[in-house]
Design a protein around this nucleic acid. Structure first.
Lengths: 295, 295
DNA sequence: AAAATAGTGTCTTTCAGACAGTATTTG
DNA sequence: CAAATACTGTCTGAAAGACACTATTTT
């Protein structure tokens, strides 16, 4: 192919002479919502421990948002994709290598970073409690796992002339051993005859940096959506697990109780049974399952 | 809040003195997959016309990819979000203002643009045939609507030691009045005990610029996925439409025939019936419906 | 009447919700 | 035996698949 452009150049000539213009360019960061599930303290050793959904946050050691908690992340380098940058941050922060990683959304609101023009491509990572143990040797001293809850608090609908605006307010709560953060995220759905638009806004925010409350909210919504029709939740499970544990994970993600019989029917084709059982549990042993790797 | 950082600065002082470093930054473009549905020519005026799913492409007038077809798009400016940039491009290209717009994915492969470091945040827009008429006055002379088909051609699965790799090859065909483009997009799903990764690659590509074959493939997959559990397809319909037309749109998106009775039951709560009917159709008139704006 | 599309009725199958019942282990 | 969890059986009702049937218009 040797097409010539208006200046009579071939593509090779064009590229050899190409000089990037000096118009403004944004910095692009990759930020990660890293989820895991851990056992809460049980009242008695005969009772099963409850499961908690947790997110990793890092306390900011410099301006802006000094002292606030932020998602792990960093700037993308010219020789890597946003996904590679996310995986690199994940490795640096947690030592974990082989995890489920999914791009969520690219945030580009003007002024979202008070320093300069910064976009953020956000990712969701799911790691299981086996892998989390490796978290010891991280460089950011002020990293902590926060228990997450995300709950619809208020719902309203306003009719406009030719459509309506639905407003949903969610309370996002993040609780660690020594900090408790709360944010309210508002989801606004504007329905008009020829369009539907959804926008997120942070209404109040106590302790989270940047627009990271929005990112966490979006991640939870994605997780909740996918749990119902994929095997995504299995990435939060250790190698061997009981169906009751799996059900607890679904319940903590969806923030709602499920019926045992129906749940077992539903996940039957996502798991493979093994010949192992739990031991010394203070009650009847439970069969252990693995994630199904065929099909 | 007047916390001081290690240099003893308040946040305000820090920001006043902040100088962006001179590390490399990418350009960020917003590219759009604009879908619409139009009637194909009918054999006889007594037969219903078939529906076609179409995408807007623009022939490149300069290097790189001179003469190839590309998605409409452009660079994001510092005073706008990627979404605003997408909406701006859409307006410039088609004159259309009020449409369904959804962020798809941010592409950042190294070398995806041969000139320089460019990421692209891709969007999907759905516009209806009423709105498309406005397309006359566009600046890019070489814009054309292409009929799209996207079909699974080959499927294979290879077992690895502890998991498997599934490879799906899709043929993407784009046909306009005077051009026919074909690309093969390969979707690779790598399943390992603690992760699942999906990657897209363009295996062959005849006539599309950049990685735009991947973007279109991703857009179609998103559209197909959402059609089943949202009212997204209604954004492709004009103000009044028959249920048969709506079914045709579902069928052309999903590339599969649906059963009439079941379809009507399924969409019943997405539409509102009107008192209008089609006229002079050469057969029994059909009731016209609108998109349901309540609930 | 023929051609064409519009629209409905209903049987079957599948699957989720609901709930009760049985089974197994430890203290 | 009591406490605790594990696991199964089955009824019901909602929704999707399948297919046949009726209805209405134009030529």
């Amino acid at each position: 192919m040797d097409l010539l452009d208006r200046d009579g150049l071939t593509e090779r000539e064009f590229l050899e002479r190409y000089q990037p213009g000096d118009y403004e360019r944004p910095s692009v960061a990759a930020d990660m919502v890293i989820f895991t599930v851990t056992d809460a303290e049980a009242d008695s050793y005969r009772k099963l421990p409850e499961k908690e959904l947790r997110v990793l946050l890092i306390r900011r050691g410099g301006h802006p948002f000094l002292g606030k908690w932020a998602l792990p992340g960093g700037f993308v380098r010219p020789d890597e994709t946003t996904e590679q940058a996310a995986a690199r941050e994940l490795r640096e922060e947690t030592g974990v290598e082989d995890v489920y990683l999914e791009q969520l959304y690219t945030f580009s609101d003007v002024g979202r970073d008070p320093r300069t023009w910064v976009m953020s491509c956000s990712y969701m990572a799911l790691i299981n409690s086996d892998q989390v143990k490796l978290q010891a040797g991280d460089d950011a001293a002020d990293a902590a796992w926060f228990k997450v809850t995300y709950r619809l608090m208020r719902e309203s609908k306003e009719l406009t002339g030719d459509g309506y605006i639905k407003t949903l307010q969610y309370e996002l709560k993040l609780i660690s051993e020594d900090a408790e953060l709360t944010a309210v995220v508002e989801k606004t759905i504007t329905v008009k005859p020829s369009s539907t638009a959804t926008a997120y806004a942070v209404v109040s925010n106590d302790g989270l940096a940047f627009d990271h409350a929005k990112m966490i909210a979006l991640a939870i919504e994605r997780l909740r959506g996918k749990v119902n029709y994929t095997d995504i939740a299995l990435h939060l499970m250790p190698g061997l697990f009981t169906l009751t544990e799996l059900q607890q994970v679904y319940e903590v993600i969806l923030d709602k109780e499920l019926l045992k019989a129906a749940f077992r029917r539903k996940v039957a084709d996502l798991v493979t049974e093994t010949d192992h059982y739990t031991e010394n549990a203070g009650h009847r042993p439970s069969r252990l399952f693995r994630r199904k790797m065929e099909e």
